[in-house]
Simulated assay, not measured.
Amino acid sequence: MERDRHHAGKRTRAILTLAALARSQQASGDEAAAKRTASSAAELYADYRRLSKSIEDSHGIRNDRRFRMTLPAELEGRRMEQWARRKEPLSASASGDGS
């Protein structure tokens, strides 16, 4: 992604892939690995959010690719941020019931 920083599709796929991996790790009982992976997804999301905000705020910069935050990345990135900050398993925060 460093060579193609302004590719929303690649950024979105990376976040979604890491989120799926975190869920798989959690399902297999590896909570520590799941939390590390969720944290990595959250870091990618934060970087994507900063970059898209800087493009949005810089009205003089050309945005030929129409680079912006995608909805799937926004939703999954927020989930991973929330889960990475919590102590309970990923499945609890993903369910939305707080248990």
Rank of each mutant, 00 (worst) to 15 (best):
R65N: 03
T17M: 06
R49F: 07
A38W: 00
H59V: 10
R3Y: 09
S54D: 15
A33G: 13
L90H: 03
A73Q: 14
L75M: 15
L21Y: 03
S58I: 07
E74P: 02
T12I: 06
I61E: 09
R78I: 15
L75W: 04
A33E: 10
L51P: 03
A92W: 10
S24K: 07
G96P: 04
A73M: 03
N63Y: 03
D4G: 01
Y48A: 09
R50I: 02
R23I: 02
T17W: 01
R85F: 11
Y45W: 08
R79L: 14
Q82C: 08
R85V: 11
E74A: 06
F67C: 05
I61L: 13
G29T: 07
P89T: 09
E76F: 02
E88D: 13
W83N: 09
E2K: 07
R49I: 03
E81R: 09
D57A: 13
Q26L: 04
L51K: 03
R5K: 15
S28I: 07
D64P: 11
R65M: 14
E56Y: 06
E43W: 10
A38S: 11
R23K: 07
M69L: 12
R78Y: 08
L51S: 07
R11T: 01
D30E: 07
S95V: 01
T37H: 10
A22M: 00
A92F: 12
E81T: 06
H59Q: 11
A27R: 12
E88G: 04
A34S: 14
E74H: 10
A33N: 05
R11Q: 14
A38D: 08
E88P: 01
K53W: 04
H7I: 08
G96K: 13
T70A: 03
H59L: 14
A27D: 08
K53M: 13
G77M: 02
S91K: 06
A38I: 04
D97W: 14
E88W: 05
S28W: 09
N63S: 07
E2Q: 06
R78A: 11
Y45G: 04
S52W: 05
Q25P: 05
R50Q: 12
R65P: 00
A42H: 05
I15A: 13
A27F: 07
L18G: 02
M69K: 04
A38V: 11
T70F: 01
R68G: 05
E88K: 09
A38P: 01
M80Y: 00
H7F: 14
R85S: 15
T12D: 11
H7L: 04
A20F: 15
A73Y: 01
A19Y: 01
D30I: 00
R65G: 11
T70E: 11
E31R: 10
D64H: 08
D47I: 10
F67A: 01
D57W: 14
D64C: 00
A41P: 06
S24T: 07
S40L: 06
E31T: 08
D97H: 12
I61V: 13
D97I: 10
R49H: 10
A38T: 06
G77N: 03
E31K: 06
T37F: 07
K35H: 03
P89M: 13
S99K: 10
I15V: 10
A14H: 00
G29F: 09
A33W: 00
S52K: 03
L44V: 05
S99C: 13
H59A: 14
F67G: 04
S95F: 03
K53G: 00
T70P: 02
R5C: 00
R68F: 09
R13T: 11
H6P: 02
R86W: 07
R11V: 09
D64A: 15
